Computed example of a mutant assay.
Amino acid sequence: MDPIIIVVIVGTFFIFKLLTGRTSLKSADAKKIVSEGGKIVDVRSPGEYKSGHFKGAINIQHDKIINGAKKAKLSKDSPIILYCASGARSSVAKRVLKSEGYTNIHNAGTQGKLKNLLS
């Protein structure tokens, strides 16, 4: 096999793992955030959200996260937990929000991981 192909495959794998890596959000922290009124944001597409989402989550598509956060009146210091299908889009949304001055953003990764954190 061509060494360049191997490097591309391995590099792609590591980039994917970096984007969808473990969340640092702990179960106790997630429960506290939700109990204190923190928002859960599903950053998947409206169609994905419609097909099933975490109870109480609002839908703001990841590529519209800044305008959506403003429209939903999410303050820059209020706690927000993000999730998507794989953790990649929520990771991107977290970085975008942080770059815009949001300070209390958490990436749960996937809906399943969020469910586990809150159960």
Rank of each mutant, 00 (worst) to 15 (best):
F54R: 04
G101P: 05
A57H: 08
L74K: 00
S75A: 12
V43E: 13
I80K: 00
V34Q: 08
G56W: 10
Y83E: 01
A57C: 07
Q61M: 07
S86H: 10
I33R: 03
G52R: 09
S99W: 01
I40E: 04
R95S: 13
E48G: 11
A85T: 10
Q61L: 01
A93N: 08
K39D: 02
Y83I: 06
G37D: 08
I60Q: 05
H62C: 03
S35Q: 07
F54P: 04
G56C: 12
S86P: 06
A57L: 05
Y102H: 03
S45P: 03
T103C: 06
P46C: 02
V43M: 12
K32A: 10
I40V: 15
K64H: 12
V34D: 04
G87N: 08
V96D: 11
S90Y: 13
A93M: 11
V96W: 13
I33C: 04
H62S: 09
N67P: 00
G38C: 09
R95P: 01
R44N: 02
A57Y: 11
S99A: 08
G101A: 12
E36L: 01
Y83S: 07
D77M: 01
G101I: 12
L97I: 09
L74M: 09
N67F: 02
I65V: 05
S99Q: 09
I60F: 03
K76M: 11
N59L: 04
K39V: 15
K73W: 08
K76E: 09
R89S: 09
